[in-house]
Design a protein around this nucleic acid. Structure first.
Ligand SMILES: [Mn+2]
Ligand SMILES: [Mn+2]
Ligand SMILES: [Zn+2]
Ligand SMILES: [Zn+2]
Lengths: 143, 143
DNA sequence: TTCTCAATTTGTAATGATTACAAATTGATA
DNA sequence: TATCAATTTGTAATCATTACAAATTGAGAA
């Protein structure tokens, strides 16, 4: 198993690895929850008391420009972020509001309606009840 | 060919067909552009000078609740609306910012990662260059 | 080491879409 | 015609995001 430091990883993507950038990337990479700016800021603020929310916004914009993160607009009200940039779908539970990843077959070829279009990005959002919340609902209905 | 008035259509979906609601629904139904609240408001304001933007927001919320319209969050900054509620994908051109519809095979069954999840809504967003803008780009490159 | 300067970070104010809310209007029914 | 709930309207509040200018940082120069 080969390990590359976050600093080297950022450098290899033409991003100067400042203290804040390293911490923000580490948090995003280790997070499974697709955090918002607010969540990232609140999580890192205790450790970096001088952190500014503007820095979180700026840094995420840099990550996206350099291709090591993506924005997820599955919520109407707030943008979430993801350090996993391989193609995958997102499911949002109406009840617990969690956002789950799911694997997806690449169905680019399926879309003959888009002949001549150059597809550069794909977002697939599903909504409903996650297995956990769905389970609880069924138990209630059984009564 | 059978025609039902917009008023009757709204009534059949449990929506009282006020003047504003009829006009807003007609505009949305006839529009191919997935308009924003601002676009709808600006388009109808000349005809309905007393129209309030709040009414546009309220009315669209009613349409969505009653299942005759849907919100499209393909833009990070502003929500677009669509009176076409059959399942279809959306493509947004980075250059001309138009949003195109495209037909899509229903691939619900494909997603075995979501066993136990109850999928209630699906949104598929593609981004890139539309055929028109892509064409123009190729012509420039040819020179 | 100290200096310099561009890149980065920070704090504050502005922006803009959306929502909250209360008053005015409408329109179906009595 | 009177009533009253539903709808519409206008204004203010909210809140995520952006703009911007000042402060800080840190890598290389001297
Ligand atoms: Mn993800
Ligand atoms: Mn559409
Ligand atoms: Zn859930
Ligand atoms: Zn285009």
């Amino acid at each position: 198993m080969m390990t590359v430091s976050v600093g080297d990883f950022l450098k290899s993507h033409d991003i100067k690895p400042s203290y804040q950038r390293v911490k923000i990337y580490e948090f995003l990479k280790n997070s499974k929850e697709h955090p918002t700016v607010e969540v990232i800021y609140s999580a890192l603020n205790p450790e970096i008391p001088t952190l500014s929310k503007t820095t979180v916004y700026n840094t995420l914009k840099v990550f996206i420009d350099k291709g090591i993160a993506m924005a997820i607009t599955i919520d109407e009200r707030e943008v979430r972020f993801d350090a996993e940039i391989r193609m995958h779908g997102h499911f949002k539970c109406y009840k617990c509001h969690q956002v789950y990843d799911f694997e997806m077959a690449d169905q680019t070829a399926d879309v003959e309606a888009l002949d001549g279009f150059q597809i550069m990005e794909r977002q697939v959002f599903y909504y409903g009840l996650c297995d956990h919340c769905n389970q609880k609902l069924e138990e209630v209905e059984k009564q």
